[in-house]
Amino acid sequence: MSGQDQAAGLRKWADLQRQQRAAQDEPQDTHASAAPASPVSTEEAAVHTQDALAPTVAAATEPATVTPPRPQKPLVVIGLPHTGAAQVDKVRGRLGQWSALGRQWAGDPQDWQIQVVMADTPSLAMLAKEHARWALWVTSDADGFASMYRVLRKVREHGGPRRLLALHEPHLPRQGLLENLRDAAAYYLDIELLLLAR
């Protein structure tokens, strides 16, 4: 039985009582043929309350249909300066950009279980065995190539994954930073860096 429905029934009963009192307090019209309303007894009020609650009792016996949450796809991201919720939000924002461009692989950014990891974490090799989806957060600033290459070198030294998605700005051209980074990772570190199609 819902407290909200019970309260609604009691409010109706109280409104009925007020109306009856107001009708009794008003001066009687001598031309009116209607008889004044009689006060509601406690039994009548209980019946009225039960009637108001009846749908709630019936609904409470039906099983509730709960939609199970969609399973999230794990994605481990390296290359961000820090870990934490703000960094996860940055990754979700970037996935949202790709999704807005119609890239089906990005899907709904909320469907991803994002974990930000530092490239030199001691448990990197264990995480690489546990998780299949990895991404490198690519920064496009002036020092982008050098800093991203250092991250990839740490990934290699700590037994990290050998295949990563380059998570970059959607309109960053392949020529230059992205292709140079992909080629250097493959040639010097034996790491495959997957570039996103524009």
Rank of each mutant, 00 (worst) to 15 (best):
M1Y: 06
S2I: 01
Q6N: 00
G9C: 09
G9H: 05
W13I: 15
A14H: 06
L16C: 00
Q17P: 00
Q17M: 07
R18D: 12
R18Y: 05
Q19S: 07
Q20F: 06
Q20P: 00
A23R: 14
Q24S: 10
Q28L: 10
D29S: 13
H31T: 13
H31K: 08
H31F: 10
S33E: 11
A34L: 15
A35W: 05
A37Q: 10
V40Y: 01
S41G: 13
S41M: 01
T42G: 01
E44I: 03
E44V: 08
A46M: 15
A46I: 14
A46K: 14
V47N: 02
D51H: 14
A52T: 12
A54V: 03
A58T: 10
A58S: 11
A59R: 14
T61I: 12
T61M: 10
E62G: 01
P63Y: 06
A64Q: 08
A64V: 13
T65C: 01
T65Y: 08
V66W: 03
T67M: 12
T67E: 13
P68M: 07
P68Y: 04
P68V: 09
P68L: 11
P69N: 08
P69G: 07
R70Q: 12
Q72C: 05
K73W: 08
P74L: 01
L75F: 08
G79V: 09
L80F: 06
T83Y: 00
Q87L: 05
V91N: 06
R92G: 03
R92I: 05
R92W: 08
G93Y: 05
G96V: 01
L101P: 02
G102M: 08
Q104V: 15
W105Q: 13
W105A: 15
A106L: 08
A106P: 10
G107Q: 04
G107V: 08
D111A: 15
W112L: 02
W112N: 02
Q113I: 00
I114S: 02
I114L: 06
V116Q: 02
M118Y: 01
D120S: 11
T121D: 11
S123H: 11
L124T: 01
A125D: 02
A132P: 01
W134N: 04
W134M: 07
A135R: 07
L136K: 06
W137K: 03
W137H: 04
V138W: 02
S147W: 03
S147T: 14
V155G: 02
R156A: 14
H158M: 05
H158E: 01
H158T: 02
G159M: 09
G160V: 10
G160Q: 04
G160Y: 04
P161C: 11
P161R: 05
P161M: 05
R163V: 07
L164P: 01
L165S: 06
L165P: 03
L165C: 09
A166S: 10
A166P: 04
L167E: 07
E169L: 09
P170R: 14
H171P: 00
P173I: 04
R174A: 12
G176T: 10
L181D: 04
R182M: 09
R182H: 12
A185E: 10
A186T: 12
Y187H: 13
L189Y: 06
D190F: 06
D190P: 08
I191V: 15
I191K: 09
L196D: 05
L196E: 12
